[in-house]
Amino acid sequence: MISKVAMWTIGSFLLLFLAFPLLVLINVSFTELNYLSFPGEGFTLKWYQKVFEDASYIDSFLYSFKLSGVATICAILIGIPASYALARNNFKGKGFVMNLISSPLLLPQIFLGLALLQFFYYFTNSPQSFLALVVAHIIITLPYVVRTCVNSFIGISPYIEEAGRDLGAGQWKTFFFVTLPLMKSSIVAATLFSFAVSWINVEVTIFLTSADQMALPVKMFNYVQYSIDPMIAAVSAITIYIAFILILIIDMLVGIENIASK
């Protein structure tokens, strides 16, 4: 009993630790003061109004959404087959492939950004394009997809698949109707990681962003270098609301309490 109380106390405290900075941002985004201060004073929607009046913010939101969406889907589509192959087989060079896929995680991203700028510039003469950004974002999100999925594939007993094949389903059919459904939670987690990593990336995106299309985090990064006011808190509060909505959509599709279970 005591341990249960202790668990709940520590557990709630730690969850609060995660929520607190977000609550601060949301609180500040409603402040009537013209500068950042916590707790904020009064209640006003003027900072949100300011964001919505500026069409370039709406454009940035949409652009970032498209970028992260496309990159995530591509990363999932190429990452899951790779994870499956890695989890089910032992072959020469497996370690190499694993390390290859993880290595984009380890490089300071500013370095990767400059490298890609040089590279795209050298080979295509048009370094800043949506396609270049998508490719860059696939590279930075792929490690999360593979890391997350390989483990789950390992966790699924090959016997289950064998049973599927014994029942007459072919290799592909077994994969799609037996293995993949069991992977649901990991795929959701991988999607979340990948979308989030792409959604907040500044260091790589900043070099590949084209003139008229500015991804949101880059826009925010440029903004806070010159001015800091509650409007920027409103922008990030909006991204928190978007995260809420995304999570609710996932909840409707797969049930959020299932996010981590089969």
Partner: peptide, 27 residues
Amino acid sequence: HVYLILFTAVLIVLSGCGKPIQPNNEA
């Protein structure tokens, strides 16, 4: 659900990549 997700996936990919790379590419 699986089909729904796959369908949206394809849709987003098409809407994103389908367009030419940047009509007003300065370089």
